[in-house]
Simulated scan of single mutants.
Amino acid sequence: MPEYDEQGPVDDELARQVAAALRQKADAAPKAARLASTARSRVHRRRQTVLVGGAAVVVALAIGGVWQLASPSFDTMTSGSADSGSAQPESKADQPTPPRDAKKSGTVCEPFHAIASATSITDIPVAIGLDLNTPVTGLTVCRYRMIEPNVRLSTALLGSAVLGPEQAQEVVDAIKPLPERNPDLPVFKCSPAQAKPKQAIVLRFDTATGLREVWVGYDGCSSPGFYTGKKTYGLYAAPLKLIAIGKARPDRGTFLGPLPGW
């Protein structure tokens, strides 16, 4: 028989095996492609998640950095203000004019005070007068104009000043040894209308038991001095200079001209 015919069955079997293998690979190819596509999709999604998360972190850091620049923390502001010498002080025009070492007194000068309408500066009520042996912790000096009956004003206050505890005690210590009258001052004879001063000063002292006052007379024709309600102390320049600060300083007064040392 011819050689071709003898080998035919073998070749056919081999051909069938090759065809089957090719079909198997062909059938498996779509599945593999689908698996590869799914894997690539998952990797792509993971990359997107990582990129979005990274972008969020970058944005958060960027926003945080801007916030730090725009709004420094309290500690940064505090330490910067305390340590830096470049902080601008308040304008002197906006600041009160407390004297020397003053710790501010808790009292204030009222627009109107009983002294403004009093018949005489000696009429200070005993209950509010200061015993000069009482320790004081602050002083507010209030200068008032005296108001005539039926006269309407928006305020009787002419000026004020605040003194600290040491200064307040210094004023008390300067008044305490004074005699009842200053013999170096003249004695005027005048009518009751002339006797009433045009202005006077109230010393408002802070004490452990509350507010206590001393009234100061330096104008008019009546006896000038410091009045506590229980005792009178003559007018002398030394204690008057301690309280004559800024707008609290008298701008007129019958007894200021002849007052020695003023």
Rank of each mutant, 00 (worst) to 15 (best):
P165H: 02
A32N: 09
L153F: 04
A82I: 12
E3W: 01
Y227A: 03
R42E: 06
S223D: 14
K231D: 09
L256Q: 01
P125N: 08
S81E: 07
E6A: 11
G253T: 05
L35S: 05
C142L: 04
A127L: 05
R23P: 01
P239E: 03
L35R: 13
A82Q: 14
V126I: 09
R47V: 09
H44G: 13
F226K: 03
S86P: 10
A93N: 08
S120W: 12
R40N: 12
R16D: 13
P135W: 02
V50I: 12
A244V: 02
S191H: 04
A237W: 15
G217H: 09
V172I: 10
L163V: 07
R181F: 12
M1F: 04
Q24Y: 14
P258K: 06
R45A: 12
G261R: 03
P149V: 00
P186E: 14
G80C: 03
S84H: 07
E90L: 15
A82H: 13
Y227G: 01
K198L: 05
G138V: 02
Q17I: 13
A174F: 11
R47E: 11
R212W: 05
R40A: 15
G246K: 09
T137W: 00
R143L: 02
D11A: 10
G159R: 00
T38I: 08
K25V: 09
S160F: 12
Y236S: 08
V10F: 13
H113E: 15
A62W: 12
L211R: 15
P183W: 14
R46N: 11
R45N: 11
L235W: 05
V58A: 15
P98V: 06
L51M: 13
L61F: 13
M1N: 05
C109L: 00
G217C: 03
I63L: 15
A193Y: 11
L130V: 06
R145Y: 06
D219H: 10
Y4Q: 14
S73Y: 07
I121M: 02
R47C: 08
I245Q: 06
K230E: 14
P9Q: 12
G164A: 08
T76S: 09
S120C: 09
V58Y: 04
T254G: 03
R212K: 15
G138Y: 00
P258C: 12
T228L: 02
I124L: 04
K198T: 07
A15F: 00
S73V: 10
R204E: 00
S41H: 10
P125I: 06
E166A: 02
R152N: 01
A33P: 12
W67L: 10
P177E: 13
K241M: 00
F188I: 08
L211S: 14
R204D: 00
D75E: 11
E170D: 15
M146A: 09
L211Y: 07
S81L: 10
L203F: 14
S84V: 07
A60P: 10
A238Y: 06
L35A: 06
